[in-house]
Amino acid sequence: MARTTYDETAIIEQLHHQNTARAAFSQVIEHYSSTLYWQIRRMVIDHDDASDVLQNTFIKAWTSIDHFRGDAKLSTWLYKIAINESITFINKKKAQNNISLDDDDTFLTNSLESDEWFDGDQAQVLLQQAIATLPEKQRLVFNMRYYDEMKYEDMSEILNTSVGALKASYHHAVKKIEAFFAEHD
C-alpha cells in the first residue's frame, strides 16, 4: 500500500485548522502509534494495558490539540502525554492491588511468563524484573536509551531533565540491573 509522505511541518499547520485537523491527526496516529506503543508497553508490561494507555494518549492529545501551538516538537508533546498516562495507569493499578505508591513496579512482571504476548526466555524475564525495580524516571531513561537508542538531548526535552542528570541516571540504572542479575542469576 502506498503511504503518504509524513511532513511534520505541514501536519502541524493542518492541525490548527478545523477542516484539516482530523485528517492530519490520523496521520499523526499512523506515524507515532508504534513508537509510543513500545514506550508504553515497556512501562506497563501487559499488551492489553499498553493498548488502552496508547488509546488514552491519543484521545488526550486530540482533545487538547488546540493547546498545542507547535512550540515544542510534536513527538516530544506526545511522549510527555504517553509517559503521564503510563504513570497514571500504573498508580491506579497499584491502588487497585493495595500496593503503596512508594513500592517499585515489580508486581507488573508477576504474570510475564504466562503472558500470551511475551515470548522471551528466562534471561529476558529477569531483565524485565530488574528494570521494574528501578524508580519510574530511571525506568523511562533506561528504556528510552537502551531500547529506543534515543539521544540524550531529545530525552532531556521530554523529561525536562539535564543531559548530565540523564547520563548519570542511565549509568545508575545499568549498575542496578547488573547487581540484580548478580543476585538472581
Binding site: 482530523r22 491527526f25 490520523s26 496516529i29 499512523e30 502509534s33 508504534s34 506503543y37 513500545w38 508497553r41 515497556r42 499488551h47 493498548s51 496508547l54 488509546q55 491519543f58 484521545i59 486530540w62 482533545t63 504476548w117 511475551f118 515470548d119 522471551g120 526466555d121 529476558q124 524475564v125 531483565l127 524485565q128 531500547y147
Partner: peptide
Amino acid sequence: DSGFKVPEGFFEQFNQQLIDSLP
C-alpha cells in the same frame, strides 16, 4: 529484543479503530 510481541496486524487495526472513534 525485549521478548514483547503484538498480535498480527495490531497497529493497522488499532489505528483504524482509533481514527474512526475520534470525538
